[in-house]
């Protein structure tokens, strides 16, 4: 729960978190090392100085620490923990659903665990979707279209195999498709993080929501254009939000574009934990005001109501979380923990 300076309670769902193991012991090759190094560089370059972690802690952290950073020291009420396999880089995967679910079950009512699949697995991908639904009851997945696999350097949401997976997701009620479309990590000429495939998939699967993590940055204009036309396309703020610290004017420009094109009902907060911790992000976001010139130019504002939607209400809607009931449940849990 985030308490505003005026004492108001704001319900926070952190839409994008990870529980990874990027430690040297789990690295399969140089790519595993370079991948976590790159994450660490993001962490180091955009975090306030007093929020920096030592490298070793960043590579692998405990479930207890994650819980504390998000819910005790941090303002989150709930967090969506995403699964990213990267089995070509890491022996046991980077953060598989099994690892995430194991962590989440210790903390009742706190985590929404999302799965992941790779359409290039063909039939096995379909079986895996069934497995995740049956075993973990997932409501969402995180897809990583630039992931390497054998000779392949990425895939598209419009690939026939991907469509078969989406059909199954729609049928099973796995309705939230988070797609990493963000900073370029391994883009070649055919950019695997290009956002245009979202347009077609979103049109063809009206029963699914497509949450575009990182808002397609650095392809914000393409993303906005698609989001305007597709009612089931959302934007996740992870990576865009940390700019609020070092480059607030830049963040103001990005959020203005998003408010104008995508709208306050379709933007989701995400800390991208453990790249960033949520406390400072939420505090700065709540205190942030759009500069007057941008307000006027775009005719938008980042009102307290808009902030509440972005911080939690929008994600609650997508994941069917009854906010009042959830608050009551968490309060009871906190009381039980305190009493215990």
């Amino acid at each position: 729960m985030f308490i505003t300076p005026t004492g108001e309670e704001v319900f926070v769902i952190d839409g994008h978190t990870h529980f990874w193991d990027g430690s040297p012991a789990n690295q399969l090759n140089i790519h595993g090392k370079q991948f976590i190094d790159c994450f660490y560089a993001y962490h180091s370059s955009l975090s306030p100085k007093d929020k920096l972690w030592p490298k070793e802690q960043f590579e692998k952290y405990s479930a207890e620490q994650m819980y504390r950073d998000l819910f005790v020291d941090g303002p989150d009420d709930m967090a969506i923990v995403q699964s990213t396999y990267l089995t070509e880089f890491y022996k046991n995967g980077f953060n598989t659903i099994d690892r995430n679910a194991e962590m989440a079950k210790k903390y009742k009512d706190r985590f929404i665990v999302n799965g992941a699949f790779d359409p290039r697995d063909g039939e096995r991908a379909l079986e895996y979707i069934h497995y995740m639904k049956d075993t973990f009851g997932i409501k969402g997945v995180k897809l990583y279209t630039a992931e390497w696999k054998g000779e392949s350097r990425g895939w598209k949401l419009t690939d026939p195999n991907a469509y078969r997976c989406f059909e199954l997701c729609q049928k099973l009620g796995i309705t939230n498709i988070h797609v990493h479309k963000g900073p370029t990590i391994i883009p070649l000429d055919k950019d695997a993080f290009d956002v245009h495939d979202v347009d077609h998939a979103a049109t063809d699967f009206q029963g699914l929501n497509f949450i575009i993590e990182h808002c397609g940055l650095p392809r914000l204009d393409d993303f906005c254009w698609i989001a305007v036309q597709e009612t089931n396309v959302y934007g996740g703020l992870a990576v865009a939000l940390p700019f609020i610290h070092g480059r607030p004017r830049y963040f103001a420009e990005v959020i203005s574009e998003l408010l104008f094109w995508v709208g306050e009902d379709k933007i989701l907060f995400g800390s991208d934990y453990a790249i960033w911790t949520p406390r400072w992000l939420v505090e700065k976001f709540w205190n942030f005001e759009l500069p007057e010139d941008l307000k006027q130019e775009h005719g938008v504002d980042l009102t307290p109501q808009a902030k509440k939607k972005i911080l939690g209400l929008n994600a609650a809607r997508l994941y069917g979380v009854d906010v009042e009931a959830q608050k009551a449940k968490l309060a009871k849990g906190a009381y039980a923990t305190a009493a215990g």
């Binding site: 190094d37 790159c38 660490y40 560089a41 993001y42 180091s44 370059s45 955009l46 900073p183 370029t184 940055l217 650095p218 392809r219 914000l220 204009d221 906005c224 700019f243 070092g246 480059r247 830049y250 420009e253 990005v254 574009e257």
Partner: peptide, 26 residues
């Protein structure tokens, strides 16, 4: 439209500078 071009480029530019600085430190 030009602003859209700039926002995208600035995103890369600030990340790149930040990442390069970290890499150098390391």
């Amino acid at each position: 439209r030009l602003r859209g071009v700039r926002i995208n480029m600035e995103f890369n530019s600030s990340l790149c500078r930040g990442l390069l600085a970290v890499r150098r430190r390391e």
